[in-house]
Amino acid sequence: MMAFYFGQLVEIFPFFLKGLWMTSKIAFISLVSCTLIGLVLGIFRSSNSIILRHLVGVYVAFVRGTPFVVQIFIIFFIFPEWGIQLEAFSAALLAMAIMGSAFICEIVAGGIAAIPKGQWEAAASSGLTNLQQLRLIVIPQAMKIILPPLVGQYVLLIKDTSVVSVIGVMDLTRVGWVTVVRIPEGLMVFTLVGALYFMISYPLILLSNYLERRMAV
């Protein structure tokens, strides 16, 4: 029986590769957008403007305070109620961008906060504008602090893409879920799914470990 199902699984393997492709696509697009938005939000979060700081703070609290799956449901179901038609794929990307950027925002803000005040003051004293102080002095130094946790966050975000399967996006997890209905070998199917996720995230975990070790010395 096992062997029979194994044969079937080999037969539909291309289906899994399609899922892997979808997962990679979502992961890549959302990592890029999360990083960009997160960087901007992180800068806002460290700005002098109290309003801006708190606005971003509320956003971050809302995202961190609720499960990602609930956020996806809200985005997927509520936008149509407002008359905005959103297909599953776009809803998934939007949800990932909102969620991921909030976490990256905190990492960026933490990195910026770790730069001594004297660096800002020295740059200000020689006439650099606020933006120049940030771009030339603070961000390059903060980058070193930000990088290890950022890569760690990337791993979490890649794994979180599995949740978008709940709104019907045909990613790796969804493929497993659809397959298991036809081939009732749950262990085999989800071992395969897990192995494919492992292939993407484990190298990043190793990279993040390496960066963290290098930071520590």
Partner: peptide, 13 residues
């Protein structure tokens, strides 16, 4: 290195 959701399905199915 694997998503929680996949782990849940792994056990569930």
């Amino acid at each position: 290195s694997t998503p929680l959701l996949v782990q849940i399905y792994f056990l569930y199915f």
